[in-house]
């Protein structure tokens, strides 16, 4: 475990908690894409099935359980408890355009043609694009609440830190996972435009709004 990996995990955790707290404290999920959150719940579910087959460490198991539990809690808050505040009219990204190609690709390009491995690969590919419904929603409404931008920042930072972690592991451990690295690069690139807006606007105290 290197510092980039650890801060990446903590950044991921921070993002998840920020989103949960935002919804809970404001009693509203306005501006949040339920579709992205459903995709993240699917990502964690398909990736962490190895909880049943192998034990790595207490840290590993607890983080996986926390991620899964939080993502289901978020979906519950959006689609059940605070459903009245869910902005479904603006959450119109067609998720089948992501899930179907990603499903096909995970059958074609994987480390090993076994059910658990294909599901793991599916989760890696799906995670890289799961934020698109959220970014699409922001581009449609032209704005995002500041707390939502903090969520997105930590979520993007997490994969960027994982990229540095992989460079580190390549040099010091000879580890290299092409599938994770390519998907991680794609995932990080998707946040670049947002990172730019975050630094130039949100960090200077302005609200994130896009030109009409």
């Amino acid at each position: 475990m290197n510092i980039f990996r650890l801060t990446g995990d903590l950044s991921h955790l921070a993002a998840i908690i920020i989103l949960l707290l935002k919804i809970w404290k404001t009693r509203s999920c306005a501006g949040i894409s339920g579709k992205s959150q459903l995709l993240f719940a699917l990502v964690f579910t398909t990736r962490y099935l190895d909880l049943f087959t192998s034990f790595i460490s207490l840290y590993n198991t607890s983080m996986k359980l926390i991620y899964v539990a939080c993502s289901y809690a978020t979906v519950y808050l959006i689609y059940m408890k605070f459903k009245a505040t869910y902005d479904g009219n603006h959450d119109t990204f067609r998720v089948e355009f992501l899930v179907v190609p990603v499903g096909g690709l995970s059958f074609l390009v994987n480390h090993d043609f076994s059910p658990l491995e294909i599901l793991w690969t599916f989760s890696i590919y799906l995670e890289s694009v799961a934020i698109l419904p959220q970014l699409f929603m922001i581009s449609k409404t032209g704005e995002a609440e500041t707390i939502t931008t903090h969520y997105l920042f930590f979520l993007g930072l997490y994969r960027a830190l994982y990229l540095i972690n992989w460079i580190w592991r390549y040099y010091f451990e000879g580890f290299f996972d092409l599938i994770a690295v390519v998907a991680g690069v794609v995932q990080t690139i998707l946040y670049c435009d947002f990172f730019y807006l975050y630094v130039t606007k949100v960090l200077k105290g302005k609200k994130l709004s896009l030109p009409a």
Partner: peptide
Amino acid sequence: CHRKKAKDEL
């Protein structure tokens, strides 16, 4: 080198 995935990562 092209090794399999890191099992310990999240």
